[in-house]
């Protein structure tokens, strides 16, 4: 019985991985920088940060689904009127269609797939960034005043301000007035940092080097919001700053990261003064490409002494 279950779970996982690969290949979900024009415009990239005092989860090996080259969708409609047509429909959208039903309820497999994808998204919100990833790039950690994940989700304002100890650490350990300041934060998805940092950071460093730009002391903010970059700006006074931060996880991927960039960040900056690259993940904007692209944007910010809507790219 248990073996059967394991087999089923493996099969379901394999199928989901195929689907994830396909979905993102067809559908790089674009995000605008224009903010809220409707209640339900595309999801705001304003990431909400992440966990701290949550009970330590059992260590889990995070295996990211490999994007499959031959996307394949299965259907459970038993006697479709037009069988080839069903394949056509399935290949045109990542939406969960052709799933069939029992009475008016979904099939067990379909229901479990949804539950598992939701679990992955929730784990990303409540997860913690792996210390090994931070150590690999010698990032030390400072915290915002978020206190705990629950409070972080409820009080975006507290995720924008570093703790007193955090401020002291920056003053002691970071180079002041650097040309480029790199900051990493968990935001709403610790998994996004785990998944992308090892590709984004080296390519960003290479890119900065190729433009002849110098970089200050990078570090990690636990429980950070986008506007935490303003507080960092006040303390370190960089020319330009880039914040790599986990996005609100969706069911298609929980590993999406954004890069928010700003010229001379300081308190009271408004959203339109920031430049953002969102949707950085293996099946969206690839992390390596994103790193190079960020370097280019930062160099333009330095050239034009501007960011956000005033920056000409």
């Amino acid at each position: 019985m248990e073996q059967q279950l394991d087999f089923l779970v493996d099969k379901v996982v394999a199928e989901l991985q195929k689907k994830l690969g396909e979905v993102s290949e067809q559908a790089p979900s674009p995000k605008t920088e224009t903010g809220l024009i409707q209640l339900r415009s595309e999801p705001k990239a304003e990431p909400v940060a992440n966990a701290t005092a949550a009970p330590t989860p059992a260590p889990v090996v995070n295996e990211q689904p490999a994007p499959s080259k031959e996307p394949e969708r299965t259907t459970h409609v038993p006697n479709p009127k037009y069988k080839e047509g069903l394949d056509e429909l399935l290949s045109s959208t990542p939406a969960r269609i052709g799933v069939w039903r029992t009475g008016v309820r979904p099939l067990t497999k379909t229901m479990l797939e949804l539950r598992r994808d939701h679990a992955a998204a929730v784990d990303a919100v409540y997860g913690e960034v792996s210390q090994a990833v931070l150590d690999q790039f010698s990032l030390f950690t400072v915290e915002t005043q978020y206190d705990n994940t629950e409070n972080y989700l409820k009080r975006p304002d507290m995720g924008r301000i570093l703790t007193e100890e955090g401020v002291r650490m920056l003053q002691e350990r970071c180079q002041k007035k650097p040309q480029v300041q790199i900051v990493v934060s968990d935001g709403l998805s610790a998994a996004a940092v785990d998944a992308n940092l090892k590709d984004v950071l080296p390519s960003l460093m290479d890119s900065l080097k190729s433009y002849g730009l110098t970089c200050g002391t990078p570090f990690f903010i636990k429980g950070g919001r986008v506007a935490s970059m303003d507080h960092v700006g006040e303390i370190l006074e960089p020319e330009v700053l880039v914040l790599l931060i986990g996005e609100r996880p969706g069911l298609v991927t929980a590993h999406s990261m954004s890069a928010y960039m700003c010229y001379r960040p300081r308190k009271g900056m408004v959203e339109s003064e920031r430049t953002v690259i969102s949707n950085i993940h293996r099946q969206g904007t690839s992390p390596v490409e994103a790193g190079a692209h960020i370097g280019t944007i930062l160099s333009k910010m330095l050239e034009q002494k501007a960011s956000g809507v005033k920056l000409v790219l």
């Binding site: 595309e42 959208t93 969960r96 269609i97 979904p106 949804l114 609100r248 969706g250």
Partner: peptide, 16 residues
């Protein structure tokens, strides 16, 4: 479809 909006990235109610 299955409550999962693949554009807005949130969950609603499904056809079922």
């Amino acid at each position: 479809a299955m409550a999962d909006d693949v554009m807005l990235n949130y969950q609603s109610t499904s056809f079922h």
